[in-house]
Design a protein around this nucleic acid. Structure first.
Lengths: 228, 228
DNA sequence: CCAAAAGTGTTACGATTACACCCATGT
DNA sequence: ACATGGGTGTAATCGTAACACTTTTGG
């Protein structure tokens, strides 16, 4: 019983070792025919002159998902955005001062409502082409961005998450272009249309997109509850 | 600048809110033609009279993967076992006393070397059929087991992780049976063999399994670095 | 009217499925 | 000897991939 008491105390001591838990969100947008990710520069703290993913510390009264939502809301002002857990990073030397483990998420936002608000402790905020990231990226955020991008590609392939990346209405060519740019593949126009139609995720608006040769039809993403 | 100082202090305060981080490992074995999961009963602590996944608290000098490895080693004595991250659980009311978030893993062990060691603070340790779990399972471990099982199924389907679940040599019928039991599907014998062979993951030992009618050939999992 | 992009169907191929008999071994 | 399980090939089907011309619109 003494042995067990000892074990228990060790357990309790371990429980109270200090470790912060944060979430980092890779916010993706599809702008000017490229997949972009949103990075910020902080006014203070470590990696001041580096670009970082928007992230924040989890508080006692929120889950990791709550925390990610909060961070996203504080930074972009958007709600009901599609976002997903990606991975947890728990390497010892992630943060220079203390032990910090982070759960990464990715989020998709529509390019049409980009009212980027510079929040507290933020010096700059900017979209970066996923293939042209800045040199100086803080912590292991380059790795996190890379992993989030892989995850996005996987989800796009398997689960058709694109409703949040395009404007409310879009042409099939625009959608195909998004697939080609994000997945870095070339698709056959006819096969692509066939596939998308038989997946039954689009509804035609009946209208044609003005200003484009050929007069392409505009479509809408079927899945009702999409953010505004 | 005063505003920023304030922000920074809030951030630091948030950093130091107390939250334990644990790992829980769903150890799977394939025994008597069923997928089993390893559960323990603790001698002390919450959920004493409940079954629990083996799990432990992450220490300051280890990553989550290290921690899972450690827990696994302490419980089974095995090393070089195949295991993978599954999911993180961060709901507020997971633990009755304090905030605890846990990263779950699943691990696969060979049935042939089951020297189950009862570690400290463990009253009982036992394999349970995945479809006949005990009534009383502590915390959210029933959910964690369920999610880990889904993950295992996915990996079995897509990445052929079975080398760790079967003895060193096995017949194709045994392998097919494993697939059928874990995935809960019925497979065609000829198509299954065709598929496995064209995947080129097995090598024949040239020997036949004694004691079985028909005299089936024994195979070995090709992937070199498999645990002992 | 011309250039540019939209829209449309069919064929070929590869992968998956369904299916039945003979052979080897243990009892 | 016989009952049990091991081992083998082929035809049908489905999904995927390749491919070229006509129509619509903007400039």
């Amino acid at each position: 019983m003494v042995e067990q008491e000892k074990l228990k105390r060790i357990q309790v001591d371990r429980n109270s070792f200090e470790c912060s838990i944060t979430t980092d969100v890779a916010v993706f947008g599809f702008i000017e025919n490229s997949l972009k990710v949103l990075l910020i520069k902080r006014l203070s703290g470590y990696f001041m002159n580096h670009w970082l993913l928007p992230g924040g510390v989890m508080e006692a009264d929120e889950t990791l998902d709550d925390c990610a939502k909060k961070v996203l809301y504080q930074l972009t002002g958007f709600r009901n955005i599609h976002f997903e857990q990606v991975k947890i990073y728990s390497e010892l030397e992630r943060h220079p001062l203390k032990r910090v483990i982070t759960q990464s998420f990715y989020a998709l936002v529509k390019p049409e409502n980009h009212s980027l608000v510079i929040g507290g402790n933020v010096e700059r905020i900017s979209w970066f082409d996923i293939d042209r990231l800045p040199e100086k990226i803080g912590y292991d955020h380059r790795q996190i961005i890379h992993d989030a991008n892989l995850n996005l590609q996987l989800n796009l392939r398997e689960r058709l998450i694109f409703g949040e990346l395009l404007p409310k209405t879009f042409t099939l060519a625009e959608l195909q272009n998004l697939y080609e740019r994000i997945l870095k593949i070339k698709l056959d126009k006819r096969n692509f249309r066939k596939k998308i139609f038989q997946m039954d995720v689009l509804t035609s608006t009946g209208e044609k997109k003005p200003g484009v040769k050929g007069g392409p039809l505009l479509y809408r993403y079927k899945n009702g509850n999409v953010c505004e």
